[in-house]
Deep mutational scan, measured.
Amino acid sequence: NQESVVAAVLIPINTALTVGMMTTRVVSPTGAPAEDIPRLISMQVNQVVPMGTTLMPDMVKGYAP
């Protein structure tokens, strides 16, 4: 099972992602793949992402898996 990126903390809208904001988990439906964490760092979210929420590609500005 592939791990997806999950918010480790509450991420406010327009916040640039840091490694400490993200964790990985096997979830369904799958979100952004765990191996993309290095690409996701410094990208901004376009909505509030509550802690424990799977990071879906459409939540991150300019990100395409």
Rank of each mutant, 00 (worst) to 15 (best):
D36G: 01
P57M: 06
T54Q: 03
P38G: 11
G20V: 11
I13D: 10
D58T: 12
M43N: 04
E35Q: 14
I13R: 13
V19T: 11
A8S: 10
A32V: 15
M56S: 04
I13K: 15
Y63T: 03
V48K: 12
Q2F: 14
I37L: 11
V26F: 13
G20S: 14
V49A: 01
E35K: 14
T30G: 11
E3Q: 13
V49L: 06
A32G: 05
Q2I: 14
S4F: 07
M22K: 05
E35Y: 15
N14L: 09
E3F: 12
P12I: 09
A32N: 06
Q2V: 13
P50N: 08
Q44E: 14
G20T: 12
P50M: 10
Q47S: 05
N1I: 14
M43L: 14
M59A: 06
T53N: 08
S4Y: 07
Y63C: 00
V48N: 15
L40R: 00
V26H: 12
N1H: 13
E35H: 15
I41E: 03
P29A: 02
Q2W: 12
I11Q: 00
I11T: 00
M21R: 00
T18G: 04
M21C: 08
L17I: 05
E3M: 14
N1L: 15
E3W: 13
M59K: 04
L55C: 04
G31S: 05
P57C: 09
V60F: 06
T30I: 15
L10N: 14
P50L: 10
A8N: 06
T15N: 04
T53R: 10
P38S: 10
E35V: 14
N14G: 12
A8V: 08
V9Q: 11
Q47V: 11
Q2K: 13
N14W: 15
A32R: 01
V9W: 04
S42A: 11
A34D: 02
M59P: 02
L17A: 03
G31C: 03
G20N: 13
R25T: 08
D36I: 04
I41D: 04
T18R: 10
T15P: 02
P38L: 09
G20H: 14
N1V: 14
Y63K: 01
A32M: 15
P57E: 05
G20C: 14
M56I: 00
G52S: 03
I37R: 00
V27G: 00
T23N: 08
P33L: 09
P65Y: 09
R39W: 09
P29Y: 07
V49R: 01
D58K: 12
L10H: 15
A7K: 00
I37E: 04
M43G: 00
L55T: 02
R25E: 09
Q44Y: 13
A64W: 14
P57F: 08
R39D: 06
Q2D: 10
T15M: 08
V48Y: 10
L10D: 15
V45Q: 03
Y63L: 03
L55N: 03
P57H: 06
V26G: 03
D36P: 00
E3R: 14
V6H: 00
M51L: 11
L55F: 04
S42H: 12
V27A: 05
I41P: 08
V49T: 03
P29G: 01
A7N: 01
Q2L: 12
D36C: 09
V19Q: 12
L55S: 02
N46A: 07
E35A: 15
P29T: 01
K61Y: 13
A7M: 07
I41W: 00
V9T: 11
V26A: 10
T24F: 09
L10G: 04
M56K: 05
M22I: 09
Q44N: 05
P33N: 04
A32C: 15
P38Y: 11
V19Y: 15
P33S: 06
K61I: 15
M22T: 07
N14K: 05
M59H: 04
L17T: 02
A16E: 11
P57N: 01
V48W: 12
T18W: 09
Y63A: 03
V6S: 01
Q47M: 09
L55P: 03
S4T: 04
V6M: 02
V60A: 01
V27N: 04
T24W: 09
M51H: 05
L17Y: 07
V9L: 07
T30F: 14
P33D: 03
R25M: 11
Q44F: 12
M21P: 06
V6R: 00
V48C: 15
Q44K: 14
S42R: 09
T53K: 10
T23V: 11
T18M: 08
I41G: 02
L40I: 02
N1K: 14
V45F: 04
R39H: 10
T15G: 06
M59Q: 03
L40Y: 04
M22R: 00
M22D: 07
A8M: 08
M51Y: 08
T53V: 11
P12G: 08
A34V: 07
G31V: 02
E35D: 11
N14S: 06
V9P: 01
T53E: 11
T53M: 13
M21D: 07
D36S: 03
Q47E: 05
G31N: 05
A34L: 05
S4C: 08
T18I: 08
N46R: 07
V26T: 08
M21V: 04
L55I: 14
V19A: 14
L55K: 01
A34M: 05
V5S: 00
V60H: 03
T54F: 04
A16C: 12
A64E: 15
P65H: 10
P50S: 09
I13F: 10
P57G: 05
P29C: 07
T54A: 02
V60D: 04
T30W: 12
A32S: 07
L10M: 13
P38W: 13
V48D: 15
T54N: 00
A34W: 06
A34P: 10
S28G: 02
A7E: 01
E35M: 12
L10S: 11
D58C: 14
Q47Y: 07
G31K: 04
Q47R: 12
R39C: 12
P33H: 05
T24P: 08
V49K: 01
N46H: 06
R39K: 12
T54K: 00
S42W: 09
N46L: 10
I41Q: 01
T15C: 10
V5D: 00
N46D: 04
S42Y: 08
M43W: 06
R39I: 13
L10C: 15
Q47I: 10
M21T: 04
P65G: 10
T18Q: 11
P29K: 01
V27H: 01
Q2R: 14
A7F: 08
M51F: 07
R25W: 09
L40D: 01
T15V: 09
R25H: 08
E35L: 11
M21S: 06
D36W: 08
V45T: 10
M59R: 01
P29M: 08
M56L: 10
L40F: 01
V45S: 03
A64C: 15
V5A: 01
Q44M: 12
V26I: 14
M51K: 14
Y63I: 02
T23S: 11
